[in-house]
Amino acid sequence: MPVFQVKHFFYALILFSLWACRPEGASSLIEQGGNSPQPSGLKLYKITGSKTLGAVLMPALLEAYLRQKGVQALEKSKLSGAYLYRWEQDGKKLRLELLPKGSQAGFMALAAGQAQMAMASKEIEDSLLAQLPALKEEQRLLLAYDALRVLVHKEKAEIKQLTKLQLGKIFRGEVRDWAEIDPRFSGPIRLYLRNEQSGSFHFVQRILGELGAVHKQQENFDYLLQDLANDPNGLAFAPYELPAGLSVSTVAVAGRKANLQDLQYLFRRPLYLYLDTLALKDPFWLDFMAFCQSEAGQKIVAQSGFASLAPSL
């Protein structure tokens, strides 16, 4: 092989190696779906974050929005908990990945430029805010309200309510046996929570303080509810909408039952969408956020088991 051909071959090999070993964040410009060049005319969008929002509500909102925009031949696939949407519009190929991984993961992806939108079941923390360029008010959208239930196994259904003080002591590990709550029962209190990537975990921690008691964490509420249904000594926080037929019972907190509309219920919480700064320049995201707060979008919120921004819906 001539010398110049060998030299060009090795240059090409080096360039290919650099491309193949590029860090994950290097693809973030493509994933932003903004004004940067896209491969083969493909425009990529990404939403990640809260599983509370990403399981049912966000797919329903996205699909209704795209239908309203007249999108034809919309393809939807699901793999390992992620949804992938493909469609064509105005001669362009578009792809959107919806990846529910927990509120913390959504915030981190937003800060790293790896997603345009984060779903969150809590407000963003100051420590993460420092990683984002001055977050503008229009980048945060109040989408809906949720209410976490406090649940026990059906065998403990006679325990009708707990106070905030009792819950705090239980989750700090100061109260460990059911006999300390109700003398009719005994046995170690076993606790079930979402994992620390979830907004639910951090929301409960903000209300009750440090969750220092031994507890089992689950990636999603489905597994958590299965654990509780199989444990007569269990206690858990769970979503407002529950599957039918579970051997669980809701406990009132400070005299108030779980209620989406009750502003005084201790574990009622707002749910948010956070938008990346660059995405503010993309009409797709601005239009989608407007749809989420529209009457049509808020009807979907109510139908999905959350409290809409308009109580009458």
Rank of each mutant, 00 (worst) to 15 (best):
K164T: 05
R184D: 03
A290R: 13
G212T: 15
G33H: 05
G212K: 03
P232R: 00
D287M: 04
Q89P: 00
S186H: 00
L13N: 07
A254L: 02
F171G: 14
F237P: 03
S77E: 00
S127I: 11
L148Y: 10
S28V: 10
A252Y: 05
L98N: 06
F10I: 13
P23V: 13
A157M: 07
L44C: 06
R256N: 08
R176F: 07
S17W: 07
T277E: 12
A147R: 00
Q161T: 04
Y272D: 12
P39N: 01
F9A: 01
P37T: 09
L309M: 02
R256K: 14
W19N: 13
S50Q: 09
A302S: 10
K78T: 14
A238I: 00
L143A: 12
P243Y: 04
Y11I: 13
G33C: 09
A229R: 00
D146V: 15
E63L: 14
L53M: 05
D222N: 07
L142C: 09
S308C: 09
A252H: 08
F221D: 15
L275N: 07
K51A: 05
L99V: 05
Y223R: 06
Y11G: 01
R67T: 00
R172C: 04
L228Q: 10
R67M: 07
D282K: 07
Q32S: 13
R269P: 03
F201W: 09
A118R: 12
S312T: 01
L263H: 09
K160Q: 03
L66T: 04
R149Q: 13
W285T: 15
C292M: 10
H215L: 07
G209C: 06
P188H: 02
Q217V: 04
S127G: 08
K216H: 03
M1R: 05
I189K: 01
Y272Q: 14
L191P: 05
E210L: 12
L208T: 13
D146G: 15
S27T: 05
S50G: 02
Q32Y: 06
C292I: 13
N35Y: 08
Q298L: 06
D262C: 02
L208E: 13
L61P: 02
I170T: 10
D146T: 15
L273Q: 03
G199A: 03
R184T: 09
L142P: 15
L128F: 10
R190G: 00
K281P: 02
Y265W: 01
D126L: 08
S121F: 08
P188E: 15
L57I: 10
K122A: 11
V150H: 08
Y265C: 15
G245T: 01
Y265T: 15
N230A: 13
D287A: 10
D262Y: 02
G113D: 12
Y240R: 08
S77L: 03
A105V: 12
R95C: 03
L110S: 06
G212A: 06
K92S: 04
Q114N: 02
L84P: 03
D177W: 01
E125H: 03
Q298Y: 11
Q166V: 10
L141S: 13
P270H: 14
E196L: 00
I159H: 00
K43Y: 09
F9T: 01
